[in-house]
Design a protein around this nucleic acid. Sequence first.
DNA 1: GCATAAGCGAGACGGTACGTCCTGTCTTATC
DNA 2: GATAAGACAGGACGTACCGTCTCGCTTATGC
Lengths: 197, 197, 197, 197
Amino acid sequence: MAGAKVGRPRSKKAYLAILKAAREIIEEAGTHRLTIEGVARRAGVGKPTIYRYWSNAQELAIATFMNPEVSNLPETSTNPGISDLRNLIQQTVQRLNSKQGRQMAFMLAGAETDSELFKAFRNRMILDTREKGTLILESAKIRGEIRSDVDVGLCLDMILGMIVLRLLIAHTELGEDLVDDVISMVLKGILPGASDT
Amino acid sequence: MAGAKVGRPRSKKAYLAILKAAREIIEEAGTHRLTIEGVARRAGVGKPTIYRYWSNAQELAIATFMNPEVSNLPETSTNPGISDLRNLIQQTVQRLNSKQGRQMAFMLAGAETDSELFKAFRNRMILDTREKGTLILESAKIRGEIRSDVDVGLCLDMILGMIVLRLLIAHTELGEDLVDDVISMVLKGILPGASDT
Amino acid sequence: MAGAKVGRPRSKKAYLAILKAAREIIEEAGTHRLTIEGVARRAGVGKPTIYRYWSNAQELAIATFMNPEVSNLPETSTNPGISDLRNLIQQTVQRLNSKQGRQMAFMLAGAETDSELFKAFRNRMILDTREKGTLILESAKIRGEIRSDVDVGLCLDMILGMIVLRLLIAHTELGEDLVDDVISMVLKGILPGASDT
Amino acid sequence: MAGAKVGRPRSKKAYLAILKAAREIIEEAGTHRLTIEGVARRAGVGKPTIYRYWSNAQELAIATFMNPEVSNLPETSTNPGISDLRNLIQQTVQRLNSKQGRQMAFMLAGAETDSELFKAFRNRMILDTREKGTLILESAKIRGEIRSDVDVGLCLDMILGMIVLRLLIAHTELGEDLVDDVISMVLKGILPGASDT
DNA sequence: GCATAAGCGAGACGGTACGTCCTGTCTTATC
DNA sequence: GATAAGACAGGACGTACCGTCTCGCTTATGC
């Protein structure tokens, strides 16, 4: 690779203007109205400048959700107990329940599933929660707070899945009570013989 | 009723040819390669004929999954017990796990969520299962097979949500074991003090 | 309304409605905005009914100018003299100078030149005048009012041609003076040695 | 001077290919078979490239006659006499009598009469001759070759009009003799007392 | 310290598809 | 048995974007 850093350096200003314009368009008109031409026009930028960073509108859209404004979840406590699960889910619900999160979730399904950015998104929005949740539940397992034969991944997918389902398909409100209910259910199951809420 | 059945009747043949062509294109190239022009070409049909039925490619794509080939779930027994839940979920997994179902699930997220066809799809693919599941669980409640304070809707959304999540985002295989595991979990919960699988 | 017998109860009415609608459209929007669909819609008539009489929009347009409202020129006196030429040209100018005449002249050039209706139009608008003019000039020839070697057809074509040219291409006003001027010129020529106007 | 020469320059090659294709289509199938899609296909060019230059098929058709192949009339001698009129008319007849000229004349009538290109055409095909003819006749007037009270414009319109009329409407052959006859007539008039041809 | 290489905005390019409109033909039920 | 209604295959319209490709400039680096 000759010319590692020769030539004019890429303009930070242009890069940020593109992301800003893209975010605004998505905000105003929705993800499927995002076009490269529209972004270029709004950002006062040439189309090739956009293509230099992302190879299509899809990727740009995904990137929009990857920038610092959608921050990571706060760290869980170093030795988390089963009670931390509530906070985690609460935070995930809030994050996905935002306008941005909603659009992103929509967009997700249309994406080329093998793309790096799709994976990145999935990592950030779902797996991130899943990972933290795994940490919590495995700790709980060790401490005997939950049964040792529990499939932790399945458990988390049921919780996350429910959230995604209601968001994407049922378009139900995701209230605060929900979090308590779902935790209660996942803990006690639905069979008789467990104490009430 | 003026205009009720005046004029040349719509051609069943053309209608079916359109759906067939659309289905084939989706099968071969994916949902996002479906274009009205392509369908018209393949079906040997004029574009306006397509637009007479559906107002854009999205709607046509959704309609593709609404026709008889993707049939309703079989009826559950008239007085279903908790054991029927397994069959219901098994069938849903199979249906969504097909190539067609997978594509459809993908497509879902990009759709205009207020469109009639989106709702129709949701009804058929999700609510259909949800409704039958509700029947089963409410019966089980009455018979005392499950606790009376259980939120039946939430319970089903956790199961369905997990399926959708794994299909859309994690792209995990949806094996047969899964069904047993998820039912077990939802019945017993994850707290200690329940018998093993 | 309801005809007593089967057969053709509303034929005349439909026919006239078509012509009326066509005339109105041409009047309002110009000849090139005339479409069969538009006429059918406006006339409350099925498209095939129009096609039963005329085979395309062009023919219909021409037919519009063939109906009684654009009347024939008045008859010339039975034994016309050279002085009748002025009246003839005057009338022709007036007829072509009308809005309808103008549009018709425009349309003429776009027409399929071999169609019967094109010929019919030509007959009515140009040859009609030409014929009457020939009568006048041949009579004048016999009476010695003009030279015997004059090409009568050429002479009339120069007069009519000038009118058409100014109408179509130069868009000059066709005033009354013009008629006197052109007759004077065609009579005396432009060489010196003729008395002034 | 923003936008003066920014951006990729327009491709001369594409421009010429469009005109060539348009000319060929008109030549082969006639003016009313000229479609933007057809031209794009034949020229190996995108439709928007055509629309960048002309806003519809009509304008493109007119432009076809405006390019160098249909050249200007040759210059008349610097101090032209009445005898030059013959050459001028002869050339005009030839030009209009060509296949291309004929089609163009037809097309003329269908055009939006206020368009720039319509005017351009009129300028080139009619006014060009008219202007040169005016020069000739005014010179002749000064030298006393024709009467001083002659309306030069009217005279030329009669000649040109006759040509156009026969071309458009009568579809008469425009032979060589015609030129002599029309000049003779316009010079001498049709009254008795002038010498024979 | 000046050449060079890459980035920049602008915008034209060949394309594809859009959704609309109209053509001329056909197939019904109605009158 | 002609009519109105309107669906049909076809095809052109003019527009919007796609992703690529020049342009003439600008901006650093590194020779």
